[in-house]
Nucleic acid binder design. Sequence first.
DNA 1: ATACCTGCAAAGTCTTTGCCTTAGG
DNA 2: CCTAAGGCAAAGACTTTGCAGGTAT
Lengths: 152, 152
Amino acid sequence: MDQVYEHLIVRCKESGLRRTKPLEFLLQVMSQENRPMTLADLAEHPVLASNCDKATVFRLIGRLTDKGIVRRLGLHERAAYFTLLLPGRHQDFLICSSCGDIKAVKAPCPVHQLEQEIAEQTGYSGLYHELEFFGTCPSCQPPSDTRHSLSA
Amino acid sequence: MDQVYEHLIVRCKESGLRRTKPLEFLLQVMSQENRPMTLADLAEHPVLASNCDKATVFRLIGRLTDKGIVRRLGLHERAAYFTLLLPGRHQDFLICSSCGDIKAVKAPCPVHQLEQEIAEQTGYSGLYHELEFFGTCPSCQPPSDTRHSLSA
DNA sequence: ATACCTGCAAAGTCTTTGCCTTAGG
DNA sequence: CCTAAGGCAAAGACTTTGCAGGTAT
């Protein structure tokens, strides 16, 4: 836990971020909580609430995301996504982090068995899952030499 | 495609929704696009933009979600979630749709191979994925008889 | 005929930015 | 010293709601 914190501090330094109090507090909170958190979760956490501004947390998160130290979860646009729920049809998605293009994954989803196990082990009911793959689509990749794009 | 539309119309009727123009247009658009869409995607779609108000789309989506005809994707609170990106550590999550509790899934993630295949088949680079399980946690389930909750 | 639904517009909530000050390296 | 980072406050963006009139059943 504390090891994680130290690791993060090092990576921030390597990334050229200045070691400020707010940064330290933020990393401390995130490494302790170890779960996805919203800006509000973070900013309202006692440690952060009493030590730095919401805007600072916001900008820190932005920098950490740029440096690849933090990841923003979910379909990226800042808006809710909705999809039809059709009986017997389950879709997984492939999303381009750059242009935001979303397409359905053709391959069968390999998660159903795990879903079953989780239901049994945790007592959760009405279980379903969402699986998204993120990456950079061929059109958004920097033009290199002779890469064959097998699909658009 | 049109079959899907008809199916949806039927389900809406069964759910007690009135068959209004905006509803028809919305279902038409969603069944044609067949991908996750934001409220803005929907409301700004030519068909909907010229035929109904944003607020109407919003309320329709709400009703459809209540009826289980549409699903809202992602971690549900209306806010972005952030998580640490630690080398060699991948986390999948189990989220309670009712209380919003988020915990990490213990079991190893079964998706890596598929991820590999997708990278090869689509030409996407820098691929990663997010997998979330949603359901109702034991504490949020209506108290029934003698269910053993094997974990909290 | 009535309850549900729509459109318009305003209010709310969370996010994002400007600007000046502070402080890390 | 110089420039990145912080704090405060205002502006933005998307979502959500109130209300009055329309319409499916």
